[in-house]
């Protein structure tokens, strides 16, 4: 009940005890801040720090570890952006699927000397300078745009599950889009006939199938002798 006491203190009871409670309340407020909207900053900082760690670390397995944390933190950012479905897809496909594949690759190839292949220090410095310049360009261009001009217009409510991205819970609308229907057209007389994302969705699914068959063909075990490394 600290906070009630703190509230009473703010209501105007002078004295050391009240001051102390007010101070305590503000301290705990500061501690509690990351728990709600501040999660964005926590996960943002985590994503950024882990991405930098990917660049800095030399061991491939460590890189994979940091990459997992970075991508998982980005998935959490998707949740904070009310894009639940994208966030869960990120966790399931990216972190749980693609990265497991990547780690398989690491384990099949990272034998002894290839675990750490260092770049030359000069290259690192050059890449760092170029990267900072690129970051500067991107950030300056992002800041120079007045984003308020492009703020979303209030969406009309079609029903539960057909929310705008700002409201969250967009799963049904996403599904309708992938099926080629526009939820806003449902029930209205002037329904437009647009393919939506049905065609890209089909193309991507066929593409994925072709890629998987191709990858299996490329990576199949060829029973051939590996070239003998000259011992001298």
């Amino acid at each position: 009940m600290i906070w009630t006491l703190g509230a009473a203190a703010e209501a105007g009871e002078p004295g050391l005890w009240a001051k102390f409670l007010g101070l305590l309340a503000s301290v705990v407020d500061a501690v509690a801040w990351p728990f709600h909207e501040g999660t964005v900053y926590v996960f943002g900082a985590m994503a950024v720090a882990c991405a930098i760690a990917v660049v800095v670390s030399q061991n491939v397995v460590r890189m994979a570890f940091w990459l997992i944390l970075s991508l998982a933190a980005t998935g959490a950012l998707f949740f904070s952006l009310n894009a639940d479905f994208v966030g869960a897809a990120q966790l399931l496909i990216y972190v749980g699927g693609t990265l497991v594949l990547l780690i398989f690759g690491v384990m099949l190839t990272a034998s002894g000397p290839f675990l750490q292949i260092k770049a030359k220090p000069g290259e690192m410095v050059l890449a760092g300078v170029v990267g900072m310049a690129l970051l500067g360009v991107i950030l300056s261009s992002a800041i120079s745009v007045d984003w308020d001009k492009h703020a979303p217009s209030p969406e009309k409510a079609v029903g539960i599950g057909f929310n705008s991205p700002a409201e969250g819970n967009t799963t049904r609308e996403l599904g309708m889009k992938f099926l080629g229907a526009n939820p806003k057209d449902i029930g209205s007389q002037k329904a437009t006939l647009s393919p939506g994302y049905l065609l890209p969705f089909e193309i991507v699914s066929v593409h994925l199938l072709v890629v998987l068959i191709g990858a299996a063909y490329l990576a199949r075990a060829k029973r051939q002798k590996a070239p003998v490394v000259d011992p001298t």
Binding site: A47, V48, A51, I52, V54, V55, S70, T74, A119, E123, M124, A127, G128, V130, G131, M132, L134, L135, I138, L139, A142
Partner: peptide, 13 residues
């Protein structure tokens, strides 16, 4: 932007 630049530097180095 930071993620993007980290990726670019990672690809380069």
């Amino acid at each position: 932007a930071v993620l993007f630049v980290c990726g670019i530097v990672c690809m380069a180095t």
